[in-house]
């Protein structure tokens, strides 16, 4: 029986995993993404955080076992493998980070983490949501404009009516 540690994987919506594990393998960010900027002579640091730009972050596999020295690591999006009772489980994780605490506890935070059978559905839902969002934006905007025009028209009628009374 291999030594175990407490593993917790959290997203803002749910606890994805909580329990004991023997090992966890993630793809950790390797190298400094900001060097990428220097290499390509980009002076704008905000470039790294823009949604429309995807930089191939160099990543390397990182496996954490029990009683690891305290560590904080940045995670690149990719696979995460958890070893529970001698068997490996695979899941997918978005950007995030891993923290090894002082008391044999490992916490992983990310805004997205799903099992393989759910990831397609989740990604599809995200795409759909984006599409709906776009639709909703245009819809609610045009709706807004329409009602604004309607309001002006009504106010105009009112004004004319009032005018008649006063004349």
């Amino acid at each position: 029986m291999a030594a175990e540690f407490q593993l917790e994987i959290l997203t803002p919506e749910k606890t994805f995993f909580a329990g004991t594990a023997e090992a966890v393998t993630v793809s950790a960010v390797y190298g400094d993404p900001r060097e990428h900027l220097a290499e390509n002579h980009i002076e704008d640091e905000a470039y790294l955080f823009r949604e429309d730009v995807s930089i191939d972050v160099e990543s390397a596999e990182l496996t954490v076992l029990a009683h690891h020295h305290p560590m904080v690591a940045a995670l690149a999006p990719g696979e995460i493998r958890i070893k529970v009772d001698g068997a490996w489980k695979t899941a997918y994780i978005g950007e995030g980070f891993l923290e090894v605490g002082y008391d044999n506890v490992v916490q992983i935070f990310s805004h997205l983490c799903e099992w393989p059978d759910a990831i397609d559905a989740v990604l599809a839902a995200m795409e759909e949501e984006k599409e709906q969002e776009r639709l909703r934006n245009t819809e609610s905007l045009s709706e807004h404009r329409r009602s604004e025009i309607e309001l002006q028209r009504m106010l105009d009628i009112l004004r004319r009516k009032r005018g008649n009374v006063n004349n």
């Binding site: 950790a28 960010v29 390797y30 190298g31 400094d32 993404p33 900001r34 790294l48 955080f49 990182l62 020295h69 305290p70 560590m71 904080v72 690591a73 940045a74 995670l75 950007e95 995030g96 980070f97 090894v100 935070f109 990310s110 805004h111």
Partner: peptide
């Protein structure tokens, strides 16, 4: 002192983003 992988700056960027 914890280890920072790959370094404090990058880790902090990720932390703040999350």
């Amino acid at each position: 002192r914890p280890i920072f992988e790959p370094n404090v700056g990058v880790v902090f960027d990720y932390l703040v983003n999350q």
